[in-house]
Design a protein around this nucleic acid. Sequence first.
DNA 1: CCTACCGATCGGTAGG
DNA 2: CCTACCGATCGGTAGG
Lengths: 196, 196
Amino acid sequence: MPKVARKEKILEKASGLFRNKGYHGTTIRDISEASGILSGSLYAHIRSKEDLLFEITDRGAEHFLQSVRPIIEGEGDAITKLRKAMVAHVQVITDHLEAATVFFHEWKSLTDERRHMIQTKRDEYEGLWAQLLVEGMNEGCFRKVDEKFARLLILSAMNGLYQWYQPDGEQTPIEVAERYASILLAGLAHREGSAL
Amino acid sequence: MPKVARKEKILEKASGLFRNKGYHGTTIRDISEASGILSGSLYAHIRSKEDLLFEITDRGAEHFLQSVRPIIEGEGDAITKLRKAMVAHVQVITDHLEAATVFFHEWKSLTDERRHMIQTKRDEYEGLWAQLLVEGMNEGCFRKVDEKFARLLILSAMNGLYQWYQPDGEQTPIEVAERYASILLAGLAHREGSAL
DNA sequence: CCTACCGATCGGTAGG
DNA sequence: CCTACCGATCGGTAGG
């Protein structure tokens, strides 16, 4: 196996283990076994266990940024862009379930410098959504609610997906995202329901 | 310090450490330092590190069940009950931030038997929400959407709270819950907005 | 990429 | 609840 492919295999196996057992719950020997390489030999490909965590987390961050940024910074009305951005976000989660989970959960185990690098990307990503929500409220197509509040609600709701989404389920990522968008935009209650 | 108070202090310190560093990232020596007891002496109060994790997780589960069950099984229309149940759920999170985080994140580190015990309580809790949503759809006050889908969206959105809620912030738990309920019930979009 | 290994630290225990 | 300690395992390295 070529060297790059071997490294990718190690990253892939480590992602799965970090997702299921956590970073601290996963040992170098777990990763070496899953990769079919003895633990000492792993260090021909990586410099440290934390390097693996950083690389996985950073890739996760980049997936989200690169998928969603062009949509939010592009043309269109806010509702259309919100739908598209939600579809893109959900697809990053479903296409990279392991990396997304590690990105959400395990980044806090990084040591200072690298944790700050990831934090910066997280802030940038949240900023994109903030921009979209403010835009939509100014355009008048969103109700004027607290922006930070709405943003965290939307992101939390979508991010919950990684805990229950099953790739072999009936629903495609696009269907999932559309249903989320529908409920979040239109609400759960009937219009003729009691006073809201 | 009486024995029971000492045990409570250990549980409290362990909750905070498990929340911040994860179960596997926390050592017995971390817990003993935080509690002001030498690590060997800890075992006069606990039988194992996993016992601590189980007790914290199980208490978390019970907080949610005991707060929300009476509301959902009580009288009232579904919209009122949904609001109340959301307030109760949010208050469990804000009142027991550490235990709630451990309940959401770290329960998977339990070994088989105990993990199953927690899984059973999780299922029971989700069942309560399922019951409420089905009730609301049958009463006609909720739109007929996929029940499982709506339930996971609501729970995911609320559970995201433990990641960003700050006890010293401006918003009270009740305000947070009310805002969540408002967006989830009425939706983010203006009624006169584009076709939904 | 393997063999052989290391110092540090882990969860936990014996005896008082 | 302390002192003293243990076997196991950890992340990582030297030399080939």
